[in-house]
Design a protein around this nucleic acid. Sequence first.
DNA 1: CACCAGGGTACCT
DNA 2: AGGTACCATGGT
Length: 332
Amino acid sequence: MNVNAPTLQTRLPVSDYDLASTLACGQAFRWRATELGWEGVIGQRWVRLRAGEGVGPGRTGFRPVPLPHRPAGQAGSLSYSKGPIDILAETMTSPADWRWLVDYLQAELNLASILATFPDDEPMRASVAACSGLRLLRQEPWECLASFILSSTKQIVQIQQIVELLCVRFGSPLATPAGARLTHAFPTAAQLAATSEADLRACKMGFRAPNLLAAACAVDSGGLNLSAVGQGTVVEAREQLMKLPGVGPKIANCVLLFAYGQQQAFPVDVWVMKALRQLYFPKRQPRPERLQRFVDTYFGPNAGYAQQYLFHYMRTRKQFFAARPEQPRAIR
DNA sequence: CACCAGGGTACCT
DNA sequence: AGGTACCATGGT
């Protein structure tokens, strides 16, 4: 439904918040940088976000902060401002309150208290300096789970494409302003459970199709209760998620971290693996299990948060890590 | 064009 | 236990 109507607005006062690194750091896959701001969908609502600062008497005016040309947001991104700032949010429907948005964005979280728990070493200092204002979102569990089932050995750009195909083909249409890039909600488990493996493969997801379908059926049938998963301990929750085919420790940890707010959950993907090996184990090549045990103790109570800073820093500053020479090979 | 991508799994020693 | 091939597809 393409409604050509003015959008409704609110302003969230935040501090130490960077929209660009938060929305483009690979934790969520439906945010697009446009000339008018960051456009996305949260639940059943189309949303546009923009950072700015209040000006004039009572800060009633609004001076937008320029968007970065590169969505990834390099260090010192223009979208970031250290001090108090406002996030201007636009939607098509008028909610009674904006709690859903505050929760999703984690706008009330004291970021400094999180950063203070990171280990004080050179890689973390560099990552924090490069990713100022990066927040972990609080996403809806089903969308997060489904998205990360699609993520295995896929580049983030491709995951975004697959997710968009899924939304347009199987998700419910949303009220959007004219010219909106995103027009459909993420499909519910029931909507995907009603598809076939062939339908899903047509969305370019390849061998991941049966895994997504199985997850959709499990959630739709009640065999997997995602609300209940959030009630148990981290260990129990991880066990439940890993019962699904195609969901191993990495994907389970992503869902725990990005949807359930388990900030100690530490997903180890290929990027983080490379970083950990080079930075903390330059000599040995520890096995994944050993590496997981290390990160779960070394990075503290917000290890997952630290992981996201490392991950984003890795991806935006590839040369920092790539520049390190490999072990010299014997000439034969 | 090779190589790799926010992995997981089955199947080998 | 510890390694390895394979899965499907497209970006770089």
